[in-house]
Amino acid sequence: MTEAEKFTEYTIPRKDTVYCVEFCGTETSSQLLAVGSNSKVSIYLCKFREEEEVEEFEYEQLHDLQNGCRVTALSWSPETSITCLPRNIRLAAGGSDHRIQIFHSDLRGNDSVMVLEGHTDFVNSLTFDPETGDRLASVGDDKWCRIWDKDGNQELTFPLSAQGMSVCWHREEPVKVMVAQKNGVIKIFSLSGQMQLMSFDTNQVPLMEADWCVGNKGLLIGAVAGSDWVMFDVSVSSRPVERRQIHVEGTRYFRWAKCHDSLVASVGRPGRQIKVFNAKSSQTPITLSQTVTYGLSWHQKLPALATGGDQKVHIYMFDSL
């Protein structure tokens, strides 16, 4: 089987550069895709033949939310639902103005926005708590992890020893957040105890992104630092259980698949290579190339990977993995 036979590529044309992409993580609204650009967040409805009666792939642009500056991070609230009326869209967007905006919309013109101010530098990552969406965690270049409550107040803050690149919540660990720092160190904080519980060191810099696997009962954390992909099992030790050189000139993005416990994707150099591989296998990764690549997001139910680019959203549907 050739590389081209392993996946199908779909595109959504844009008139601007796409800096962030994020599929909705709720089971009932997994068709939603948020796209962040220079000044707005666009909401798309994506239909794949694997789960709906469409010929191949169809999309519809549902709504635009004005952000006023470049979008640096996106996160969907689990409250989001489009299966009943009124529709309920709730998502957070980090901006290049160092602020976070939480948008709420019924997709019929009734929009509201809550502005969260506190970060003093770029916001690199956001995540709502996966159960209720009552809390939002954020990290940025100001070396702080901030936990916000439903009313937009800072409920907790954790100082970091380097820029915060990723923050993740896990459904199995509702009172813990994982924070990845640019200096190669990953920390897990307790929200109930308001303290650091454990840390892991990739021994590589710069660490650009980390993700907490949605399966495996919250035991696996993956990260990309320097040219390497590194995996930790939090139940075993603070040492990596797996390390591979994945992009010889450095890696920028990394995400675990949501529908598969060991499927991962990364983006790095040379160029803007995208690699998709099985974390538990030594098989050669599927390698894709784009001229411009910003961000990665996996579909909640399907092996479909979205990436941003120059005037396009690219979506890759993988056939056999």
Rank of each mutant, 00 (worst) to 15 (best):
M1C: 14
T2K: 12
K6S: 05
F7H: 14
I12W: 00
C20H: 00
G25A: 13
E27Q: 15
L32C: 08
L33W: 00
A34V: 05
A34C: 06
G36W: 00
S37T: 15
S39W: 00
K40W: 00
S42P: 13
I43G: 06
L45C: 09
C46N: 04
K47R: 08
E52G: 06
E53W: 03
V54A: 07
E55C: 08
E55R: 07
F57D: 13
E60F: 01
Q61F: 02
H63C: 15
N67A: 14
G68H: 11
C69Q: 09
R70M: 06
V71C: 15
A73I: 13
A73Y: 03
S75V: 06
W76G: 13
E79M: 08
T80S: 09
S81C: 06
I82M: 14
I82P: 01
L85S: 06
R87L: 09
A93G: 10
A93N: 06
H98Q: 12
H98N: 04
Q101S: 10
I102H: 08
F103G: 10
L107P: 01
G109L: 02
G109P: 13
N110T: 08
M114N: 08
D121Y: 12
V123L: 05
L126E: 04
T127M: 03
F128Q: 12
E131L: 11
D134R: 02
R135D: 14
A137W: 09
D142M: 04
D149V: 14
K150I: 12
D151A: 09
G152A: 02
N153H: 13
Q154D: 10
Q154W: 03
T157S: 12
T157Q: 10
S161I: 09
A162V: 14
A162D: 08
A162F: 07
M165S: 05
S166C: 06
R171V: 05
E172M: 12
A180S: 13
K182S: 07
G184Q: 05
F189D: 01
L191T: 13
G193H: 11
Q196S: 06
L197D: 05
T202F: 00
Q204N: 13
L207P: 11
L207G: 08
E209V: 07
D211T: 04
W212A: 09
C213Q: 11
C213I: 11
V214T: 14
G215V: 11
W229E: 14
M231F: 00
D233T: 03
V234H: 03
R239N: 15
P240D: 01
V241H: 11
Q245M: 11
V248T: 10
V248Q: 09
T251P: 02
W256Y: 15
K258E: 06
C259A: 02
S262E: 02
L263I: 15
V264D: 14
V264Q: 11
V267R: 15
G268N: 07
G268T: 11
P270T: 04
V276G: 08
F277A: 12
F277I: 12
S282P: 08
P285S: 04
P285W: 01
I286T: 10
I286Y: 14
T287K: 15
T287F: 00
T287G: 04
T291F: 00
V292Y: 04
Y294S: 12
Y294F: 06
H299T: 07
K301R: 04
A306H: 01
G308S: 03
G308D: 00
D310Y: 10
Q311D: 03
K312W: 04
V313Q: 03
M317L: 11
M317R: 07
